[in-house]
Design a protein around this nucleic acid. Structure first.
Lengths: 329, 329
DNA sequence: CATCGTTGTTCCAACGATGTAAAGACCCGA
DNA sequence: TCGGGTCTTTACATCGTTGGAACAACGATG
């Protein structure tokens, strides 16, 4: 691998002059510039990022801390974050926590100014004390705890309310919710939106109809739906806090010969690509994932230069995509 | 951020002694070792990886070059590669190519010994000439071209043959295939397995029943299935070269009121998590993704130390998971 | 022609870590 | 007491890059 030194020798100039050319410094004699450029071309020089960053005090990386890539929402988001980060010549380092406290603590501990310039976090179990960060960070989703970190995300209360209002508009009276979670901020907000929508339609809130979930995997949705169908009076609709839970719930409904949307309307959350192709296709709250990714990366980019700016709370748009799981074809 | 110098000053020893303690060098006096360890603890020292790697000539990163993270197979694989890489203290850099030649070329060009120690590649369009790599690499899938790079993957011919034999054993006579691709090595192999299975059962091969696909997205599977159902004599089974195509195909079948598996048996490939929950659930060839990820990382780890060893071709196991899309419940 | 400001280039130090060589401490037996 | 080996520590150079100061060349100015 060619270094600046090699290029300098070949071009017959000093190392610094080559560095100046590489970095677009203006005051280089046209003749020298040409010779250097030829030498760069000839050697196929590529800067050693480690050395450059060591010198510059930057690493060129940002961390993306998320539960797991096998969850479609996070996989899609990760792809968009990588694309957004490219604009700032940032590489993305993905850390999986598997939603555990230990995993999240380990991920945070491994971060530091020597490894990454900034971090995007999607925590699920972290407590206040854990947020001892040494690099600028932004939280995706909702604050479960009161920590001074900027946030990017949709208005989860409004989004949940929109989803449940839709179910109510279809005439559903017993609307269940799957996905309550002790620590997850988004879960609390979505539950709040759910209650608000019930309240404004004067529908009773029944804790029987609220089923918790820990990992938001399909299997949990399936299990939750079983317990709901076993109720004395099963629900006529279910609002799931993510699409995977909804897919699991629909699976159980199919196994029990409960017709969706005839007997049971189902709404999910996240709008995974898979949800447009399920049978029936899934009505879902669709956050603008691209906007989230861009906003998060952009915020961090500003924050790296000005770490002491006021915290930000960026609200990104969402929409409700109505599909077959709530409306008969 | 504390450096070795800070720790050394605090412990009252030289920088090198601290370095020796950090790196587990044996000959350090117990007394000094204790003082250094206390100082490490007190300062919360974490090595600057950039500097360490600059000195060691390693980067601590491997690249994972894949089409896109929003494709579940690659998302699941990426998660497993990250986990496998952790064992060797490697961080994983994910590069998305979106399956385009330009994207793949750009990804390869960006790799180099200054950025990564090695690379895992899942190319789809690259030609022979493009494989000018400056770091050890391993190919996932199949060689589409004749390049001297190690490979990890399943026996795609045998896997496809197994899948189609299964359809034949169900009594299917007109078995279609979706996913033929001009450049993709796996596609060629799977097509070969498909033809072999037909041949051994003395079933005719008809090119009408082979539909190409470029990106292996759900939409393509849906479109391909439409064209198959429009045939004068539609197929009674379809073997899709990945699960997304199969999901799309089943979607079309549902829209056309073609019953799966009654009128049409469907087999996919990859065994995405989603496929166990679709309606009907999808019979799929299940490669051992964990084994692939571990084998690839392991191979690279050996290759970094011994770059000139003979090429390897690691074959990982697969199985056929029979589900509702081929067998009536 | 001395002085000046602008341009262009080079030299040197530094980022934080580690390998090398050499020096210092220590213990043993002769 | 001395030589010789084994531990233990240190000073120094180095990885590839860039910032800053110093310096050199230049035409323009008085």
């Amino acid at each position: 691998m060619a270094t600046l030194k090699d290029v300098a020798r070949l071009a017959g100039v000093s190392v610094k002059t080559v560095s100046n050319v590489v970095n677009g410094y203006s005051f280089v004699k046209p003749d020298n510039r040409r010779r250097v450029e030829e030498a760069l071309e000839a050697t196929g020089y590529r800067p050693n990022l480690g050395a450059r960053n060591l010198r510059r005090g930057r690493t060129g990386f940002i961390a993306l801390v998320l539960p797991e890539l096998s969850i479609p929402y996070f996989a899609e988001l990760a792809g968009l974050v990588i694309a957004a980060a490219q604009e700032f010549e940032w590489n993305v380092l993905i850390e999986q926590t598997f939603g555990t406290l230990a995993g999240e603590r380990a991920a945070l501990a491994s971060l530091g100014p020597h490894l990454v310039d900034a971090a995007i976090l999607s925590p699920e179990a972290l407590q206040d004390d854990d947020f001892q960060l040494s690099v600028p960070a932004v939280l995706l989703g909702e604050h479960a705890v009161d920590v001074p970190i900027s946030r990017v995300g949709i208005d989860n209360v409004a989004a949940a309310q929109t989803a449940v209002r839709h179910l109510i508009s279809l005439g559903c009276k017993r609307i269940a919710a799957i996905g309550a979670h002790p620590h997850r901020g988004t879960a609390a907000q979505r539950l709040e939106g759910y209650r608000a929508a019930l309240a404004e339609a004067s529908l009773p809130f029944s804790s029987d109809l609220v089923v918790p979930a820990l990992n938001y995997h399909r299997a949990e949705g399936a299990a939750a739906m079983k317990s709901l169908l076993d109720l004395e009076t099963p629900p006529d609709a279910v609002f799931c806090f993510n699409d995977l839970l909804a897919i699991g719930a629909m699976r159980t409904a199919a196994e029990r010969s409960v017709s969706v949307p005839g007997d049971l309307a189902v709404v999910g959350f996240d709008n995974n690509e898979e949800s447009a192709y399920s049978a029936p296709s899934l009505t879902s709250v669709a956050p603008d994932k691209g906007a989230i990714a861009r906003a998060a990366v952009d915020l961090l980019h500003r924050r790296v230069d000005a770490p002491d700016d006021a915290l930000e709370d960026v609200e990104t748009p969402f929409s409700l995509l109505v599909r077959e799981s709530t409306v008969v074809r």
